[in-house]
C-alpha cells in the first residue's frame, strides 16, 4: 500500500483509580474508534497499555514499579495479557485494521520482559518485540532484556517496534531500518519528566538517520505515586517532510515549526490525551531512500571493533594510548 493512514493514541491514566473497568474500556474503545472512523489502517496505543487490564496491574502502573512487581507479573500477567490481547485482537479483526495494542510486562525465568505486539487485520500476531536495553535501576528490579530485533511485513509496509529506552540508542533504529523497516513505532511511558530535547534525541533522530517514518505513542497522566509525560508525534526525514520532519505532533505548535526550536521545551501538551492521524506515503519514502542510500560504511572494521571493545588508538602524534 503506497499511502496508508496511521492513528496514534496519546493515552492518559489521570484519575485512573476513580474509574471502573467499564469506564476504562469505554475510553479505550472511544480512542480506537476515533482512529478507525477517520479511516486509519493502523492504530497505535502507547507502552504499558496492557497494564490497564487488571486491578493489580493498574495499581502498579499508578504507583510505579518496584522489586515486588516481578512477583505480581509472575502470578497474574498471564491473566491480564490474555484479556488485553483478546480485547485488541477482536477490535483489529472487527474493523480490519492493524493494531499495536501497546506493551505489557510478562514473566521470564529470571525476571520480567517489557513486551509489545503488532496485531494484523485478521487478529493474528505479526510481531512480538521485547525491550532490549534497560537502565541500571530497571535491571535492579529484574527487568530482563530481549534478545532479538525483528520487523514484520504487513499490508501497509514493513514495521518494526522500539520500546522505551531503546529509542535513545541509535543502533536500534539503524538495525531495524537495515532489516528493511519503512515504519518504526516507538512506544513510550516516561516517568516524571519528558521534553522536546529527549524526543529530538530519540524518535525524531531515528527518522532523520534512517529515512523511515517514526511514530511515537506515549502514555501520560498523573498516577498516585508518579506521573507520566510524553509528546506523541509522527516524524519523517526532513528530506521527505518540510517543517523539520514533523508530520503531526500532540503539541500543534511543533507541527507548524519551520525550524527546530530548542528553546521551546516545556510543552503544555505533555499530559494531554488525544489521537493524531496522518497519511504516510511509502512511495515518497522509497524514492528518497534510493537517492540517499549510502551503502556500507568504509570504516566498517573500526565500527565492528566498537562493539567488541577492540578499538585501536592511533599513536602517530601526541601518542598517549588510552
Amino acid at each position: 500500500m503506497a499511502i496508508f493512514k496511521a492513528a496514534v493514541v496519546q493515552l492518559s491514566i489521570s484519575d485512573l483509580s476513580n474509574k471502573s473497568w467499564p469506564e476504562v474500556e469505554k475510553k479505550l474503545i472511544f480512542l480506537f474508534s476515533q482512529g478507525v472512523e477517520s479511516g486509519a489502517d493502523l492504530v497505535v496505543f502507547p507502552a504499558l497499555t496492557g497494564l490497564l487490564f487488571s486491578p493489580e496491574s493498574r495499581k502498579s502502573l499508578e504507583y510505579g514499579f518496584d522489586h515486588k512487581t516481578v512477583q505480581l507479573v509472575s502470578r497474574l500477567s498471564g491473566f491480564w495479557t490474555k484479556e488485553w490481547l483478546d480485547f485488541f485482537t477482536s477490535l483489529a479483526r472487527n474493523y480490519r485494521v492493524l493494531v499495536v495494542p501497546g506493551s505489557s510486562l510478562e514473566p521470564t525465568k529470571d525476571g520480567m520482559l517489557h513486551r509489545a505486539y503488532l496485531i494484523g487485520e485478521n487478529g493474528e500476531e505479526l510481531l512480538v518485540q521485547d525491550q532490549t536495553h534497560f537502565t541500571l535501576s530497571q535491571q535492579g528490579i529484574k527487568f530482563q532484556p530481549g534478545d532479538s530485533l525483528e520487523i514484520a511485513e504487513t499490508s501497509v509496509g514493513k514495521i518494526g517496534l522500539i520500546l522505551s529506552e531503546d529509542v535513545w540508542l541509535p543502533e536500534i533504529g539503524r538495525i531495524l531500518a537495515l532489516e528493511g523497516a519503512d515504519l518504526l513505532i516507538n512506544l513510550q511511558a516516561v516517568r516524571n519528566f519528558y521534553d522536546y530535547r529527549r524526543q529530538l534525541a530519540g524518535s525524531w533522530q531515528v527518522a532523520q538517520s534512517n529515512l523511515v517514518y517514526v511514530i511515537e505513542s506515549c502514555l501520560v497522566g498523573r498516577g498516585i505515586g508518579l506521573s507520566y509525560q510524553g509528546l506523541s508525534a509522527i516524524f519523517a526525514s526532513r528530506s521527505v517532510q518540510p517543517n523539520a520532519g514533523i508530520l503531526v505532533h500532540i503539541d500543534p505548535l511543533f507541527t507548524k515549526l519551520e525550524e527546530i526550536d530548542l528553546g521551546y521545551m516545556i510543552s503544555p501538551q505533555k499530559e494531554k490525551e488525544g489521537v493524531l492521524i496522518r497519511n504516510l506515503d511509502l512511495d515518497l519514502l522509497a524514492k528518497h531512500r534510493q537517492e540517499r542510500s549510502m551503502g556500507r560504511p568504509p570504516y566498517l572494521t573500526e565500527l565492528s571493533q566498537v562493539y567488541t571493545d577492540q578499538v585501536a588508538v592511533n599513536r602517530t602524534l601526541g601518542g598517549e594510548e588510552r
Binding site: 541500571l136 538495525i175 566498537v306 562493539y307 567488541t308
Partner: peptide, 21 residues
C-alpha cells in the same frame, strides 16, 4: 549516579551491526 543510564549491550548489538550493512 548511573542508575538512570542505559548501558549499551555490545555483545547483543554486534550480532547485527557489522553484518547488516
Amino acid at each position: 549516579d548511573s542508575r538512570g543510564q542505559v548501558k549499551m549491550r555490545k555483545e547483543f548489538l554486534k550480532r547485527y551491526l557489522p553484518t547488516l550493512y
